[in-house]
Each structure stands twice: as C-alpha cells, then as structure tokens.
Write a protein that binds this DNA or RNA. Structure first.
Lengths: 166, 166
DNA sequence: GCATATTAGTTACATATGTAACCAATATCA
DNA sequence: TGATATTGGTTACATATGTAACTAATATGC
C-alpha cells in the first residue's frame, strides 16, 4: 500500500496494487447506494415512487408551478428522466399540469392537494427521520465538516470533468 | 410499529420546508455520480469498459483466480451484474476462465497477460491520477477525516437498512 | 411577414439492471 | 444409496435510463 500522493503515473504500477475497496469513487458509490436504498425502501414500497418521482415531488413542494426544465435544474436530472417522472405522477394524480398562457410551451406543475400533498406529508417526515438517524452516527461538528468536504469534492470533481472534456 | 432508531416525528412538516439540495442522500448521490462520470469517461471511451467490467478487472488484478461469487463480495455487486461483466470480458479476451477440478461449479477467473494486463496497466494509473487530483482539493488531514466520516456513515446506513427490513 | 434558430417537452431506440426462474454440480442426511 | 437442499452461475423478463430524433411554440434576423 502506498502513501497518498507519492507515486507518479509513469512509475511501474503493478495491477495487483490497485485496491478497489479504498478507491474514493468506489467508496462514494457504495455509500451513496446504501443510503439511497435505505431511504427508497420506504417511499418506493409504501407509495410506489421512483427516485426521480420522489425528487420531482419534493422540489414541486418547495417550488410550486415549476416547469419541467426548472425541475431539471433543481434535481440535476436529465430532461427525459424528469419527463417520465412527471408523466407517471400525473397518472397517479399526485401532480397537476397547467399551461402558461404567455408561453404555451411551458407547462407549470403543482402537487395536488387531494393526493399529492398527502403523500408528501407522509414521505417527507420519514426521509427527514432517516437523515437524522444517519447523522446521529456523527457528532455535530463532524456533520458540519462532512458538509464542507462534500462541497469541496463536488466542486473539484465538476472542475476536473470539465477539464477532461476538452 | 417503528424500527429502532427511526422514530417518526409527528410534528407538522409543511411540505415546502423540505430542501432537496441539502438532503444528505441526495448530495451523496450527486457527488458520487459526478465523480463516477469523471472516472468512467476514460475507461469507458478508451477501453469500452462498463463500470461493472472495470470493477471486475481491478479485483481480478488484485485477487487472481477469484470466482464469480467471490467477485460479488469484493465488488458488492449483484451476481447477475458480475455474470454479465465476466461474459463481456471473456469475449474481449481480457479475462480467461478455468474450472476448479475439485468443484466443477466453480469457475476461477484470471486477467489475461496478452490483453487484460495491458488494459489494467493503462487504466489503473489514470484512475489513480483522478483520485489524486480529487484529493488535492482537500488537505491531508481532511482526506483522513473524510475517510473516517464515510466509514461511520456506511456502517450507520447499513445498520439502519437492516433494522428497516424487519 | 417569412425563413431560420431556439426552447419546452415527448417519443424511439438501444442499453443497463434487478428479480425470479432456471440448470448443473455438490452437500446433507435419513 | 437415494431424495432433498444448497451453491455457483446463467437466462428470461420486466423495468429503467440515456442519446438522439422528433413535434410544437416562440424568438430572431432579414
């Protein structure tokens, strides 16, 4: 095992030395998947919501009358993913769709009071409970540190990816 | 009936108060996806490796003669996912498959020296470079802290999920 | 006003992934 | 030994997801 930041690309790197279990992208993926599974267990089984549907619901709860493209920005999901989630939510009557009379391409969406709000009222507390339980494994200052570290990493990764594109 | 550690809060939770952007599972997912994209850009486009294929390759590099079920453990992937990745890697001649003469159900796998090793020699340095670049956005002690926090969170999430199952 | 470009959103296609059913080899145990 | 259970691994099916092509409405430039 090598200390961080010492080896350079051009040294001989025996393939056996690569350790997936300590590889940051892998560990992030594992953690994210585990947490997502836990949080999704509830709203998927109790309310038949997919991850994209759940995201659309909570963003619409916070920003009513968002259009699909606004939802894309807030959820950082593909527009096709959003379109399909919205379609499914419309069928379930969890959201309703209007038309902007100034620009008839735009279709603002809103959580329905009859069905949608009820779902949110049940799912959100559970999601917050899960988050709270998760954070209880850390101290208050550790939670704050984690926030900062994730923020830094996200910025770094975004920058790195952009550099790679070119 | 509530699983331990997931007590429901019956406080009134207006749905507009939920903030996806600061929700830990969402942020983890966003960070993980961004990092994965960056790391995958290289081995997917240069070497036509999927994420499961890449994982199988590096684990086989470290633990030669692993069977599919051992790969499942090391990669924490579904056995179907592993089976498909192996099938594809066999077709590309990146790995070869033997048969355990003591137990003919077992099919140990090995990275081929001709093609597979060459791929690993190219892909691993790039992966390590990416990780290094990512970690350079943090101080040395922050990297260590991040490691510990992620470890704690993973354990907590795993425990929470198991409790929920019941 | 008309041709073209852009934007909002959906559909078609190919690929990926998980669940369950499945086959083959081995282990268990009466 | 023979019936049954378990294990290693693959296949079938349904679902999910991204890329590209598409329709419809609006904006832009002449």
């Amino acid at each position: 095992m090598e200390p961080d930041g010492l080896k350079t690309t051009f040294e001989n790197q025996p393939s056996g030395a690569f350790d997936l279990e300590h590889f940051l992208p892998y560990r992030l993926s594992l953690l994210s998947n585990t947490v997502s599974e836990g949080i999704a267990q509830f709203y998927q089984q109790q309310h038949r919501l997919s991850v994209p549907e759940w995201r659309v619901m909570v963003v619409l709860g916070r920003y009513p009358d968002s259009t699909a493209s606004q939802l894309c920005e807030h959820t950082v999901m593909d527009k096709v993913t959003v379109s399909r989630a919205v379609k499914s939510l419309l069928e379930k009557r969890y959201v309703q769709r209007m038309t902007d009379s100034n620009d008839r391409r735009k279709r603002p969406l809103r959580v329905t009071t009859e069905h949608g709000e009820k779902v949110l009222q049940e799912v959100i507390p559970h999601a917050l409970d899960y988050q709270r339980a998760l954070k209880q494994s850390l101290s208050h200052s550790e939670v704050k540190t984690l926030d900062q570290l994730m923020e830094k990493l996200l910025k770094a990764a975004t920058r790195l990816n952009q550099q790679q594109q070119t």
